[in-house]
Amino acid sequence: MSEVAVKEKEPLFSKKNKKLITDPLNDTNPVTIQVLGICSALAVTVKMDAALVMSMAVLAVLIAGNVIVSLMRNLIPGKIRIIVQLVVVAALVIIVDQVLKAFVYDVSKQLSVFVGLIITNCIIMGRLEAFALANKPWASALDGLGNGIGYGIILVVVAFFKELFGSGTLLGYEIFGNATDMTGLYAMGYENNGMMLLPPSSLVLVAIYIWIQKSRNPSLQEGH
């Protein structure tokens, strides 16, 4: 992942920089290909709004953390770099947590401990170690953006199916009718799928996502 420092001035969105954003969306997706940050993907995907807020939180921490660590990359002694990274991430997570509590209190309640646990999200430490420590701030910011969105896509896709089939709603809007009043599809005998409310169903959905992704792009398949 470490890129060689470029001498001549390159445009802000050069081909290489664009790849920093687009690669993590698909071919090096942090969740489905690198299999990082799975725990939160399982835990906060029951409702779309929680998943969206969580993705935004991780995105913010990832971009800011990447930029800050990248700015300090020449000052950080190699032996204590993990501690320094942790302090940076911890500070950012506290800020994000406070912002969420101030502006979207309900969702913040739903996410509960998982906002605080962003600090242990492997994606963040992984990107700091693998990218920000060896690259310039602009490239690091783009890398953070790409990986954050890559993480967010998975969360939102999983939450989409979990909320749709588990609660019959999307972002709180009733898609299949009202389950308690027995309107819409429910009048015809449809019932919500209780398994979709349980964390293990996310594993199944993520696995299906990986299945589709890898069968579309055989170069991602591991050899036997």
Binding site: E191, N193, G194, M195, M196, L198
Partner: peptide, 10 residues
Amino acid sequence: AFLFFAHPTS
């Protein structure tokens, strides 16, 4: 098992 966890009331 799928039905058992997905639709416990049934």
